[in-house]
């Protein structure tokens, strides 16, 4: 499956019918990294060590993310999964190691440029702008494609109007895609939990990222909601060729969705491979049986 996607040039962003059809200008902007860098990896971590005043959260972790793959990171609680996501989004700075994003080397990923670098993320705990409507939350993430000055915005003419129309069109199609039409104008903070998770996903997608980091997107969801979310993740990858980095405790879901899985334990990567390889890896089984956690019973792995 991975091969198939990797061999498709441009990952079907161009040309193919697209349920989230955005204006052509916006597509070409997002497709720049896809066109200019032919290398398969979008992200590579090399021997990353992360420690907080002596406590080691990650130790010599190397990891690569390829374009358009669904890549899960699993491991018991405290294994360093969220630390890894925070490191990729520049919230933490590694103590040692290198980060290559789109082939560019970073000591620390600049968080304020993350969206422009084609990376979007969601948070483990909800991180919406509660005082803005669902629509405005999503539109705001379109901001990196906007150039109008404050005066132009106040007048609402010319460039400001075009950009507003673009943001509105993009947000509108994402609202339809994620089934948020009925709450479009509600304040995001007033929505039920599962709905807010979906708004966060829509907001992350608004900038048309090449890589999407999802930190426990299904935590606390009902099985039905989980299925919907899994379906959304598949569609996102299929339609945009977006690489998805998934942290998730529901092992069944991870096995079902992922192209490749990395397993962390005590800050070290103990396994990396396809779901089939991971399922039979003795070190993984040991990690999960040795340290029994609530959501990761060993039978989940079988």
């Amino acid at each position: 499956m991975t091969e198939e996607i990797l061999s498709a040039p441009g990952f079907r962003v161009h040309g193919t019918p697209n349920i989230l059809e955005a204006p052509p200008k916006a597509i070409s902007a997002s497709a720049i990294p896809l066109r200019t860098s032919p290398r398969p990896e979008i992200l590579r971590l090399e021997e990353i060590t992360l420690s907080f005043s002596g406590v080691i959260a990650l130790k010599d972790v190397s990891l690569d993310i390829r374009r358009g793959e669904i890549r899960s990171i699993i491991g018991p609680n405290g294994a360093g999964k969220s630390s890894l996501i925070n490191l990729i989004s520049g919230i933490y700075r590694p103590s040692r190691g290198r980060i290559y994003l789109n082939g560019r080397k970073f000591r620390r990923v600049p968080t304020h440029r993350l969206a422009r670098l084609g990376v979007a993320r969601t948070f483990q705990n909800l991180a919406l702008f509660g005082g803005l409507s669902v629509l405005d939350n999503i539109k705001l993430a379109r901001g990196i494609h906007r150039r109008a000055t404050l005066v132009e915005e106040l007048s609402g003419l010319g460039r400001a109007r075009r950009e507003e129309a673009d943001a509105l069109a993009r947000a509108g199609s994402l609202i339809d895609f994620l089934g948020l039409g009925s709450v479009r104008d509600r304040l995001a903070g007033s929505l039920p939990y599962g709905m807010q998770k979906r708004v966060e996903l829509a907001r992350a997608l608004a900038a048309e990222p090449a890589m999407l980091l999802l930190d426990e997107p299904m935590a606390g969801m009902t099985p039905a909601d989980k299925q919907t979310m899994a379906e959304s993740i598949r569609t996102i990858r299929a339609e945009f060729g977006t690489a998805v980095v998934l942290i998730e405790h529901d092992i069944g879901m991870v096995m079902e969705l992922s192209d490749r899985i990395a397993v962390l334990d005590y800050g070290r990567k103990i396994a990396d491979g396809t779901p089939a390889e991971i399922r039979t890896d003795p070190r993984v089984i040991e990690a999960y049986t040795g340290v029994v956690h609530e959501e990761s019973e060993p039978e989940d792995l079988r």
């Binding site: 969206a115 979007a120 509660g130 903070g189 608004a206």
Partner: peptide, 9 residues
């Protein structure tokens, strides 16, 4: 409402 999320987007 959420400074970090704002920075990220």
């Amino acid at each position: 409402d959420h400074e970090l999320a704002a920075r990220v987007i």
